[in-house]
Amino acid sequence: MSAARAPRALVVGEALVDVTRKPDGSVAEHPGGSPLNVAVTMARQGIDTTLAAQVGDDHFGSLVRAHLERSGVTLDGTGSSVPTASATATLDEGGAATYEFDLHWDPESLPDPADFDLVHVGSIGAWMAPGADAVADLVRRAHASGQPVGFDPNVRPALAPSIPVLRQRVFDLARLSRFVKLSDEDAEVLADGHGDPLSVLRELATHGPVLAALTRGGESAVLRSGDTEVEVQVPQVEVADTIGAGDTWMGTLLTELLLRGWTDRTAFTAEELRELGKAAVAAAAITVSRPGADPPWRGERLPPRG
């Protein structure tokens, strides 16, 4: 990677519009989707980021394109003859979201991972047929050529295949990825009643990733590399909603790894894991302090409470 240019990242997966329904009955539209949010996070923090996604020539597509352009993300369209996807997020009084989706995933082509310093995949694009097979092939090619891969399954049970099939796909991708993040909700689904989120993290960490992380909402995050495991406390902020928090966390982790030149590491020390975790939780705290998936720009600081 040349010191004369910013690191280049490819993010692959869905872009959609979050239609947010609040308890007071108001409705807002925000571009989103986990891969889009990760790409926006990375671009806003100084990474030359390309998003490979299906974005239609429609109202929602215009919202997505404008959002990506404002954030400095390059869109690599994988087919625009279909409607842009949407997700309706219904918020409860505490700001937590439940989702309903209207989307599909069938990319016509994907960029060459060898053109980038890091590839990130995840969410619906990594496990929804038929496009998930194209994503898995891209990850295999990236792994074979030595390109670092980030992976966040971001499981949505209402859209996912059966749990055994989903679990197999997640673990297959994790074996080829260096950096993997799970939420506690992801881990509970993958455990399928056998074990707790930490046990799933520890199991997954033995299957290939150099760094595996578990986020737990407002509780501490856990980062693990080999046998080294640390907890990082989450800053306390006034929560507007939780949309995009995990994506900001993952995008910030990958950004820090790229900017520090750590993507080729084979292990991390406890102090290094804490440094990475603190950057990720701080960025995610900014995102939850404002409505919608609105990741921070590099240099932003946590807002004061009250």
Rank of each mutant, 00 (worst) to 15 (best):
M128N: 05
A15S: 15
V200K: 14
V237R: 15
G122P: 01
A136Y: 03
R178A: 12
R169K: 15
V234P: 05
R175Y: 04
K278L: 11
Q54A: 14
A283H: 08
V222S: 15
E100T: 13
Y99G: 02
P303A: 13
R265Y: 04
W105A: 01
L166K: 11
E188A: 14
W249Q: 03
G217E: 04
E275Y: 09
Y99K: 07
P153G: 03
V288G: 10
G122C: 01
L214I: 06
L259Q: 15
V232Q: 15
V165S: 12
A187L: 12
A126K: 00
L110D: 02
T228G: 06
L176W: 05
G61F: 06
D137P: 03
P83V: 08
L103D: 00
A160Q: 05
R169V: 03
P111W: 12
G246R: 00
L75K: 10
E275L: 11
G94Y: 09
V155L: 06
W105C: 00
R265A: 11
D58W: 03
V288M: 09
R169Q: 15
G277E: 08
G77I: 02
D92L: 11
E272F: 05
V288D: 08
I47K: 05
L182H: 12
A221G: 13
G125C: 01
L214M: 14
G46I: 01
A245N: 10
H30R: 13
D137K: 08
I286R: 14
L36M: 15
F268A: 07
V189R: 12
V189C: 10
S289C: 08
E256P: 04
